[in-house]
């Protein structure tokens, strides 16, 4: 059987935040900028990092080493690979690229214990940036993301308010990405609007 992929109707699908993000705009100088990364490709890769064949073959497909340090990620032009557990990674790529990466991984790893699962629609990604981004995240997340302890390249799985998230820092602006389950995304979006309201929020389409 051929595995299904959502590629066919790439532009017609609905992202869970579409109905909430009808309007873009808002003050540019408020300190908070929010944006949804719609429909990025997401794969969960599982395998044994102590098996050098596994890590080598994955390296060949992804073009970068698998992050083996807990709570880190590596990024290249094609995708971001985030450590989720000792044998679990999330690969986040451009919309539509997931089936190519999935097929390449499946072909390369066919003789090795592993699993590659397309979870593109399981969650969505909210990007938050600006001078008050850290303050807003600290309202709902118990992880210390002060620049002395959290930097671009680091990721963490935690709670933001009452939603489970994966959080990773992109740059020093600072810019963070928040991965949240699709069904929790509208709650989290509303929570972010509420938490950021005192500073002013700019929403980017």
């Amino acid at each position: 059987m051929v595995d299904v992929s959502p590629n066919k109707k790439e532009n017609e699908g609905i992202s869970p935040l579409d109905s909430l993000i009808k309007l873009s705009g808002g003050p540019q100088d408020g300190g908070i900028c929010l944006k949804e990364h719609r429909h990025t490709g997401k794969l969960v890769l599982r395998g044994n990092p102590n098996d050098s064949r596994f890590t080598k073959l994955v390296y060949r497909v992804l073009g970068n080493k698998l992050p083996l340090t807990p709570n880190t990620f590596v990024q290249n032009k094609q995708q971001t690979t985030i450590w989720l557990g000792p044998d679990e990674w999330l690969i986040n790529c451009f919309p539509g690229d997931e089936s190519t990466i999935e097929n390449n991984l499946n072909n390369s790893l066919s003789k090795i214990s592993n699993s590659v699962t397309n979870v593109s629609d399981n969650s969505t990604i909210i990007q938050i940036s600006g001078s008050k981004a850290r303050t807003v995240i600290m309202k709902g997340c118990s992880i210390d993301i002060h620049p002395r302890t959290f930097q671009p390249g680091q990721a963490v799985q935690s709670n933001l308010a009452l939603a489970l998230i994966v959080l990773w820092q992109i740059d020093q602006k600072p810019t963070y990405n928040i991965l949240v389950r699709s069904s929790f995304s509208s709650y989290l979006w509303q929570w972010l609007l509420d938490a950021g309201a005192e500073f002013g929020i700019h929403i980017e389409k």
Binding site: R46, G47, T117, V119, D121, N122
Partner: peptide, 13 residues
């Protein structure tokens, strides 16, 4: 056992 589990609850409607 060679087996892996991944939640796809919300990937599928």
């Amino acid at each position: 056992l060679d087996v892996y589990f991944t939640s796809v609850t919300e990937h599928w409607a």
